[in-house]
Design a protein around this nucleic acid. Structure first.
Lengths: 240, 240
DNA sequence: TCTTTTGTAGTAACATGTTCTAAATTTCGG
DNA sequence: CCGAAATTTAGAACATGTTACTACAAAAGA
């Protein structure tokens, strides 16, 4: 259990983190902010390398600081905690959005499944890395979890459901937000089980798809249900 | 990150743990085993008290050992790790089974919902305690997680679904095990979000019920679907 | 009863995440 | 260019989970 002696100085919200990780130029920063950004990048890069080389076990703050060429205190100044660093890596979803945007949109329900597949493909493509990250997600302190797990972190996925709702794919009276929440539950649980080794990579996609299909079958209009039943059958076949 | 210097001596499977926590007498043990059992009980008891009094933060191994009246090394000999101790507390499901058995069984689908409600009621009845425990679940090391999260740990829940399947409530071709898995996903996710504070206690039951209803609606025979749609509507109303 | 085995007490030690301090360095405003 | 403010550095320090080790007590087996 980490020490919590004052817990006031660090723990900063790190307002620019998002922007730095997703976009290119630092918002408006002077030279000072640029330096911080560079150090942040160096730290993230070092963390990536360490995870790739030695797994999560090798990612100690002392090793990380040494590798990034900064002092041990600096990662704490810039990120607040080790967890925040890992979370920052997971939030860098550029790659996913590129992959997803490259493919053709389609029926809103199909889009949901496509996004699911794309994300899983990405994760499974680099198991040691994403496994570590996902494990860390469930290990994160309360504040962090909200960042990734809360509605905010899942905004992209909720948007997909909203599209489906807007196009009239959902049954009268079902709340898209609640559907989205439960799809998130499924996706996260599946990722979690994969991360800890309870689900092998080959079964991950089919497992998540099955859960999605179940839930959507319960939420979709009557005329679309058969298609989702077919998705259930198909996913079950792959899991047989 | 914990030290992993040899990781061979401790980490024992602790074969009798289950029995000790659930049943009364130690399996066949001589006097030696009885002593161990007593120490185990003392440790669990001390852990409970410490969590209740000070929250998870106060549960340090040194404090625990002192309170239990054993040496610091003893909890490691008996449980293997701090996490294993917390997990042992969560596995003590006697109370739940008593509560559940006390109620009348019913339609197999109703039984599933009843079990869900009963479990959640139990957890919400003692938030500081179960919150800590559930948080620890997602914090557990790989071996531990399997213990609680794997099919084995969820055997009770899977059994309920099997009953439903046996009574012909499920659509042709749906695999009860896979249904059970996804119900587990929902339940765990909901518990997790409650544990970390993303879902308030008042919404927990309705949230989990909604997910169950969605999934079961996608899995059940046509004649039973309307009832589950009603459950969806009802749960949504409570969440409005 | 005597010997062997098993398990604990007691305690030191280690690695790690985290915080703190003072000094050094860098940036910024003027 | 200068002083003030902000940050980093280096290193010590702390709490904690965990392991190692020795001495000792108690049970088991002969």
């Amino acid at each position: 259990m980490p020490t919590k002696r004052s817990a006031l100085l660090r723990e900063a919200p790190i307002p620019e983190m998002q922007g730095l990780l997703q976009g290119e130029p630092s918002p408006v920063g002077g030279r000072r902010e640029a330096g911080k950004a560079e150090r942040r990048r160096a730290i993230i890069k070092a963390a990536r390398e360490l995870i790739r080389e030695t797994g999560n076990a090798g990612l100690s703050m002392r090793a990380l600081a040494a590798r990034a060429g900064v002092s041990l205190a600096t990662p704490y100044n810039l990120f607040g905690s080790k967890r925040a660093i890992v979370v920052a890596m997971l939030q860098d979803v550029r790659e996913f959005h590129e992959q997803f945007s490259a493919k053709r949109p389609a029926d809103p329900i199909d889009r949901i499944f496509l996004a699911l597949d794309t994300a899983i493909e990405l994760y499974v493509g680099d198991p040691p890395f994403y496994r570590t990250l996902w494990t860390a997600v469930f290990d994160a302190s309360e504040g962090m979890r909200e960042e990734i797990l809360g509605p905010k972190g899942d905004a992209f996925w909720r948007g997909l459901v909203d599209e489906a709702a807007a196009s009239g794919a959902l049954r009268e009276g079902v709340n898209p937000n609640l559907i989205g929440q439960h799809l998130d539950f499924i996706r996260r649980s599946a990722m979690f089980e994969w991360a800890v080794g309870l689900i092998p990579a080959e079964r991950l996609a089919a497992t998540a798809r099955l859960g999605y299909a179940f839930i959507l079958a319960g939420a979709v209009t009557d005329d679309r249900r058969q298609k989702l039943f077919a998705a259930v059958t198909e996913a079950q076949r792959r899991l047989a």
